[in-house]
């Protein structure tokens, strides 16, 4: 990067967690009614990327792979301050698991001449956390996951990070290009500026690329190229709880004492 790095941020549109409901009649999961929102860990990714730009300059470009309505999350990213947004959309991508998804995102990062790719920790719908390491692996780039803080080292053409390791932390430096996955909740995503937000929501149009633009062989993406398949889904019966709300502490103590735990 030396200076002015190109920072590409992977963001995804997901169904709003809070609104995913079980249809009381069928017992089936009703995702259709849930509004589509930006995967919340990706906000931390955007903030981390914009933070690097604050430090050393450069460009922050958001990318999302998904159907055309996913462009909405790009608008949100641009409102927050990203310089541009790229919608990666092609029927060929349908049914992709993490393998082709990370392949596609890796190709896009390369297409955009990325020095740094920043992702969220995981998505709230598929919650694999595998896409960022996958992007790095497809390109043979370095990776930094569970990142709490980034520190660009432009002179050394490196990026340093503080990573969360369970029970502690470590500081790591990585050569560029590098893929970063920012730990969820680690930073305070900046609010969008008023005029930027008006622009992003009303005038901004993302760049759209497809498999052809990215020079991706259609056989290497989509359902066919996905090693994993969903074999079945069962709704999990919620654990039946007493759900007794007691009025005072003595009653609570009594309730706890009467459980088998104290027998």
């Amino acid at each position: 990067m030396t200076h002015n790095p190109t920072i590409v941020v992977g963001i995804k549109q997901v169904p709003d967690d809070d609104e995913v409901r079980i249809d009381p009649d069928t017992g089936r999961l009703d995702r259709s009614s849930a509004p589509a929102v930006l995967n919340s860990p990706d906000r931390n990714a955007l903030e981390a990327a914009l933070g690097v730009r604050d430090d050393v300059g450069g460009q922050v470009i958001a990318m999302t792979m998904g159907p055309p309505p996913a462009a909405d999350v790009l608008k949100e990213a641009v409102a927050m301050g990203c310089d541009d947004g790229v919608l990666i959309s092609d029927i060929a991508f349908g049914g992709s698991d993490t393998w082709p998804t990370s392949l596609t995102l890796a190709r896009t990062a390369e297409y955009l001449d990325a020095d740094i790719v920043v992702c969220g920790e995981e998505t709230t719908d598929s919650s694999t956390g595998q896409v960022p390491p996958g992007i790095a692996a497809h390109r043979g780039w370095a990776q930094l996951t569970y990142v709490e803080e980034l520190e660009p080292l432009p002179e050394a053409n490196q990026l340093a990070a503080r990573r969360d390791v369970e029970g502690g932390y470590e500081r790591v430096v990585a050569d560029l290009p590098v893929v970063v996955a920012v730990a969820f909740g680690e930073n305070e995503p900046r609010p969008a500026g008023l005029h930027r937000k008006i622009y992003a929501e009303n005038e901004f149009e993302p760049v759209t690329v497809d498999a052809n633009d990215l020079d991706i062989d259609e056989e290497t993406v989509g359902l066919e190229a996905s090693p994993t398949n969903v074999g079945g889904m069962e709704t999990i019966e919620g654990v039946d709880r007493e759900r007794t709300v007691v009025d005072d502490v003595d009653e609570l103590a009594e309730a706890i004492r009467s459980t088998e735990v104290f027998a």
Binding site: Q130, P133, A137, Q143
Partner: peptide, 17 residues
């Protein structure tokens, strides 16, 4: 979860997280 993908991607393995 950090390194599993670095194995699964080049071997084109199925990886369930």
């Amino acid at each position: 979860r950090d390194f599993a993908g670095r194995v699964a991607v080049p071997t084109h393995a199925g990886l369930t997280a």
